[in-house]
Design a protein around this nucleic acid. Structure first.
Lengths: 330, 330
DNA sequence: AATTTTTTCGCAATCGTTTGAAATTTTCAA
DNA sequence: TTGAAAATTTCAAACGATTGCGAAAAAATT
């Protein structure tokens, strides 16, 4: 079964292709009568405009590219969900690729995006990305790029991200409120700038506003490592009375140990994390957390993308607001 | 900055477009000398073939469409990850859309796929989908469709899914091994055929091989409902000694109650679920589960897709094998 | 009835690439 | 030197849609 094309419709109706084309898009030049006829036939033959032909002709695709380290990730998937939602509303489709945190795959993916002449790219840098040059070229070719979450330092790019420092500070505030005496703060992989930012902000705040609270700072790059670190710290004579988990991954590790050691939360140990909320609500009592919503970030990223598309070069760095969501763990 | 095209290269090199085109793809007709020249210029001007033009000309896109109820889902995201991985290896990109379980959105998305002339579609039906006609049309237009997970009954379609009955039976076997006396089995939404299948298989097996075990069967369509149901059953005089959770969603609800009520697992209560493994491993002790891997399903779906593409109409229903993964909850 | 205006439609070029077939050049044996 | 075969390269027609501009037909004006 061959696809219905304008040509086919034109032949059957004894009209020219251009007339059919115009009729289909309600062009004022065309009489109501012919419009009706054209629409009728188009429907019965269920005509679907060929997106490639359109894009070739108009030099603009209705597709955005999204590149993330991994789709199966509690944070990115909600980001993607949000972007997809907005895109759909605006008549765009999404092409999603994962970099697996490998710079060469990231480059491959970017090539696919360029070859498909996507209208724009939402990009989350892979861990050790040094390929900013490629992104630079894309923006030069007028393919807007909106970075999210893991963004380049260079501020000639458009970026949206969580208010990382605020997250850490809000957590610190809550910890101080709780009147903690000994805090164990576990951050993510040392290689990620986000870990550094959060750690610095947290440490600064604590040292300034609660200098007498004893804090221990460690880094864990996996749940297992986080669990191990927690167990070690908790086996010491002076146990921490509060633990701060910078990511869901860390929190998962901590909570494994907490459950295994049958530590009472919050009486024996206060727990606070930074999360989109899914993991903290898995436990009883619910873990208190500072909310970083991938969903909200997605919405924001989309706004930025649209702004960029409309000619305006908005080279700003926006952050989405974060808030404390009390559970019963503090 | 305008995009480099074959025409541009041809002009600069004083060659015809066809020569340039052929040189770029190493056609034997072209002399080594010109090939070298062409490649050199193409590189320095970083030429990127225009995917639209190619697809228009060749009538074949290197894009697959994927449609899922929701991307942010522990099962689907790993499915997508697998399909994406395989697609990339084979030079395909993915266009991913979510139906949000709404049939009309699903139809919209299918339209986008058709307009983009995707090479094939991986589809998970939305809950109350009655739009099989549309899928039917697509296969008639030679766009292969591989259904996964939630698949149509009609067996003129290609489908891959988990071995749902096997899942339930394996779980039942383990429960019998454990010597359970009173079992609470919580299944998913009644509307989903998968719930029915699993329930029937489970119930059958239990009644056949362990008729004296007392089983209670209930359905929950959310974590909260599962939690509530569990609490109710557990507050009865004769408490269940084993609980079976058909999905992660159910398991999450159950475990909330278990933690809240401080029920000892496995001494007071055995727990077994069906899952891809992420959720069960969040708890201590680790929950035993029958593994249904979205990842494996994705791989299988891709194989089926490729088989379908190569002309062969493989209208079969394949299932991916499942296995029991012992935790410490039984 | 002749002319102007308005409606309605068609021509033809274009987007960037592929590809069968024809045209050109080179090679080489007779 | 010549002619045929082989090696290169070019021509030109697609693919399916959009769109400026001009043409024909219908309606309105004089």
């Amino acid at each position: 079964m061959t696809n219905t094309t304008l040509k086919l419709l034109a032949q059957q109706l004894q009209l020219s292709i251009s007339t059919v084309s115009r009729a289909l898009k309600d062009h004022p030049d065309i009489s109501a009568a012919t419009k009706a006829k054209v629409h009728a036939l188009a429907n019965s033959l269920d005509y679907e405009p060929n997106a490639y032909a359109i894009q070739l002709r108009t030099q603009s695709s209705k597709i955005f590219g999204v590149i993330v380290p991994a789709i199966s990730n509690l944070f990115y998937d909600s980001f993607i969900a949000a972007v997809e939602e907005e895109s759909r509303k605006n008549g765009y489709a999404l092409m999603i690729l994962q970099s697996s945190n490998q710079p060469d795959i990231e480059l491959d993916n970017l090539k696919i995006f360029r070859q498909n002449r996507v209208s724009g790219v939402f990009a989350c840098l892979s861990a050790n990305a040094e390929n900013l040059e490629t992104y630079q070229k894309m923006t030069e070719k007028e393919i807007p790029v909106v970075f999210f979450d893991i963004v380049p330092k260079d501020n000639k790019f458009t970026k949206v991200r969580m208010a990382d420092e605020r997250c850490a500070i809000i957590a610190a505030e809550e910890i101080i409120k709780r009147n903690a005496k000994k805090v164990l703060a576990i951050f993510g992989d040392t290689g990620l700038s986000i870990s550094q930012k959060r750690k610095n902000a947290f440490q600064n705040f604590m040292e300034t506003y609660a200098p007498k609270v004893h804090c221990t700072y460690v880094n864990a790059s996996s749940s297992a490592e986080a669990e191990e670190l927690f167990r070690k710290q908790y086996s010491k004579a002076q146990k921490p009375d509060t633990v701060f988990a910078m990511t869901d991954e860390v929190l998962i590790g901590v909570m494994k140990a907490v459950q295994a050691l049958e530590i009472k939360v919050p009486s024996q140990l206060g727990v606070i994390g930074i999360s989109n909320g899914f993991i903290p609500n898995l436990y009883h009592p619910k873990i208190s957390y500072v909310e970083t919503s991938g969903y909200e970030l997605g919405k924001l990223a989309f706004v930025q993308m649209m702004a960029n598309m409309k000619g305006g070069k908005t080279l700003t760095e926006l952050t989405v607001e974060v808030k404390f969501v009390p559970g019963e763990s503090m």
